[in-house]
């Protein structure tokens, strides 16, 4: 399984999770875990997703999510899980 981490940072509003999960579902990406917090009025959502059989490839999905973020005034980033493992696990 190839895992990736999706982070959404910005001001809270209606429909963030809906919009993001729709886009993921269309790309055949399964959500494995999800957590969200609001720190200092900044909405932070973190999702662990399975990108093994992502439709259309990883890079286009990452770009579409980033564009969705721009539309909604949020920062949405999809990053391979390796970068977090490398930094935080020995």
């Amino acid at each position: 399984m190839i895992k990736a981490v999706l982070t959404v940072i910005g001001s809270d509003r209606v429909g963030i999770i809906a919009a993001v999960s729709n886009m993921l579902a269309e790309a055949d990406v399964n959500i494995l875990d999800i957590s969200q917090t609001t720190m200092d009025e900044i909405f932070t959502m973190t999702m662990l997703v399975d990108v093994t059989s992502v439709k259309g490839g990883f890079a286009p999905l990452a770009a579409n999510l980033a564009a969705l973020g721009d539309e909604m005034g949020l920062r949405i980033r999809l990053q391979h899980v390796d970068i977090f493992n490398a930094m935080h696990k020995i």
Binding site: V5, T7, I9, D33, S35, T37, T44, T46, L48, R77, Q79, V81, I83, F84, N85, M87, H88, K89
Partner: peptide, 13 residues
């Protein structure tokens, strides 16, 4: 989650 939300947030920041 296997990596904490804080750790993820730290890397992203």
């Amino acid at each position: 989650m296997f990596i904490s939300t804080d750790e993820i947030a730290q890397t992203v920041k």
